[in-house]
Amino acid sequence: MALALSQTAAIIRYELLMAWRRRALLVMGGFFLVTLIGFTAMQPPSQPAIGDIVEVNASANPPTITRRDAATGELIVEEATEEQIQSVPQALRDISLITLSSTQMVVMLVAIIFPVLVAITVVVFFAETIPLDRQYRIRELFNSAPVSSLVYLGSKLLGAWAALAITLLFVMIGFGIFARITLGAFDLTYYLQSWLLVVLPFSLTCTGWSVLAASGAGSRRKAILIGLVLLPGALLLYTLISVQFWSEVMLVGSRITPQEPLTLTMLFGAAISQTAAIQFGFLISVGFLFLVVWAWSRMRA
């Protein structure tokens, strides 16, 4: 058991080191970040306020408004007139419109736009994980060492997942900084949730499918072809999760009542949690595929 753990740790460590030295992670992370920033730049300017009003706190006594001073850009809080309160729709009262629009923008970009980049990239990119050992003619050495097929396959998969997670972390931080500068303050909780509960499980599923399905390929080229064959499946999964996410967001309008005004939780809470539930369901498919590939490799050993 101790040996298996040492072998697993070594395979993961050296997989990461080699991926880093091949510039693979840098290229993938750079691609993700640049594309995400490009999409953000293409969006119409954000509308943080209705007129110059940033927030109407109608439930306060007395009601207040926060508005941005046209000359200095400073935020000024003052008592609201009835006319000012009425100028903001009921659903948008008692919520920071800057935060709402910025959070909406970043969450939609991360949860809806970004997974399609992941789908088209990782299934091809990670397909070579195991065939690369054959390409480098190193597989014989692994097979001659006391490394079980479970440890080999599992460690390679974990190595690919670790490489992916580090890349996503880098993109999450980079894009978060960019979005904060260009879009303004946004709700960090929903930003992090959209990464951890939507993007990460989706990426792990696509990567798992790719690593395992291409594990029997004899060359890098064949592995990439298998990755391309998997692409429609990854895009189908993307379609499922994006439809789920959108539909939950679109349903928010029907849930708003005078007693329950719009909140970020109402807007994204159900969308993120329900999409995550579907995602984790699909992640189980990676487990099944792992068992099939492991049984097959064990049978051949």
Partner: peptide, 16 residues
């Protein structure tokens, strides 16, 4: 566990 093996067609990881 008791074997050392040098194959005819040996490959190495180029980036290590």
């Amino acid at each position: 566990a008791q074997l050392g093996y040098l194959p005819q067609d040996l490959g190495l990881y180029p980036n290590l």
